[in-house]
Simulated assay, not measured.
Amino acid sequence: MTVPRPVPPAPQGSAAPTPPLDASVGPERVPWRAVAVFVLVACGLAWLVATPLWTGDGADSPLFAPLAAVMMWTPAAAVLIVTLVLRTPARDRLRALGIRPLRPVRRTLGLTALGLVAPVAVVAATTLLAGALGLVDLDLVGLSGFAAQVEGALPAGTAMPPVGVLLAAQLLAIPFAALVNSLVAFGEEVGWRGWLLPALLPLGTWPALLVSGAVWGLWHAPLVLLGYNFERTDVTGVLLMVGGCVAWGVLLGWLRLRSASLWPAVVAHGSLNAVGALVLLLVAAGHTPDMAVAGPLGLVAWGVLAAVAVVLVATGQLGVRPAPGPATAAVPAPGSPSTPAG
């Protein structure tokens, strides 16, 4: 049940921030029953979809890609259940999920564009930092690793195209691949950032970001335990995925909170999926990078994303108010005595 909650005025002498959309309506408490149902349904369906992989060739199965794409829609299925069956939220569900409206248009489009670019920048910084630290052997001049991959994929007797041109084409295709990937990423994002994050916001902004990110990571377990992402088929792989999703969840969650819209997070998720293999394009021939360290969800990426989070906090972009939308409650302007911590 949602109830109107008035927004206290900003203290005199301070500028009120741009108010989030419909921030005056929200739950007083976390809907724990709905949260439990959402998590159980999303994770249970994920395991059900992945079951054929566990009885076949695992991550090497030709069914892996299509089943992984289907699995990405299991959070959306969980959203349908909690919104239509449990009626949480009870009204204006598209607005509560951040699907509509798109105004203010400039802010929504600007943060969507940032969602397209930011994962590329983070993954590129992760790759270069890992190389600088000696954690991965890169070949940024000869591109020997990428050349070896291309040569191995060409039919016998086929002339080798200029590897630099091929790499440039790969990089230029990232924005288009990101938009295509966003079509599937929507199935996840409508669950994680559309429903779960706002539902947890009564706990505080940071607890909501961290818990929703952890659930996102655990949801990947059916694929991670098959060796996907990190080539670790034990709890270590799951813990690495949880850490990576918590780190990325802060950035994607901030896009959701700052924009009052789901779409910047959807595009950012699609962009992350599109650029995730960058280190494999820049690695030196004969060297296999440890994705748990140098990959987009690995340890170095955690550090880069932590630095991004520090910048967001230091600039007042994160941690001063909950997210917009009817699923959340408004808070006063920063500096008000009644502003909640976190």
Rank of each mutant, 00 (worst) to 15 (best):
M72Y: 04
A23W: 09
L140H: 08
V123D: 02
A148W: 14
G157F: 04
R107G: 11
G213T: 11
D60P: 06
A77V: 15
P62G: 01
G249C: 04
Y228E: 09
G253N: 13
V308C: 13
A90L: 01
A59H: 06
G204F: 14
V275D: 04
W254Q: 07
L84F: 14
R33Q: 08
D234I: 07
H269V: 00
P326G: 11
A168F: 10
L102H: 11
P101H: 07
Q12I: 00
V313Y: 10
L53E: 01
S24N: 14
G335P: 03
V320N: 12
L201E: 13
L172E: 01
T51S: 15
L281A: 07
L84I: 10
G13Y: 07
V30L: 04
A274M: 11
V41E: 02
A50Q: 09
G316P: 02
L140G: 03
G213D: 10
G164M: 09
L218S: 00
A113L: 15
G26S: 00
A260H: 07
P101N: 10
V150C: 05
T315E: 04
R258H: 14
V165A: 14
L305H: 08
P207T: 02
G325H: 01
G298H: 06
Y228S: 07
T158N: 06
M71N: 12
V246R: 05
V279I: 13
R100E: 12
A42L: 13
F176L: 15
A96R: 09
L183V: 15
M160R: 05
C245P: 05
T83C: 12
A284C: 11
A168R: 15
P264D: 06
Y228K: 08
V235S: 15
V184C: 01
L166K: 02
G98H: 03
V250T: 12
T233I: 04
G98C: 10
V49I: 14
W263Y: 02
Q317Y: 01
T18E: 15
G217K: 04
G253R: 05
S259M: 05
Y228P: 00
A314D: 09
P104W: 10
T126I: 05
P296H: 14
T112P: 06
L305Y: 09
A307M: 11
T126C: 05
G319V: 00
E189T: 04
R5H: 15
G58P: 05
A341E: 10
G134C: 08
R5D: 15
T18R: 15
F230M: 02
N229E: 04
P20M: 00
A159L: 00
L210T: 09
M71W: 11
S259Q: 10
V30E: 02
A323W: 05
S336E: 13
S261N: 12
P8V: 00
S271N: 08
G13V: 06
A96G: 15
H269Y: 08
G316D: 11
G145Y: 12
P89F: 01
V313L: 07
A124K: 04
A69F: 03
P340E: 06
G98R: 04
W263L: 02
G342A: 08
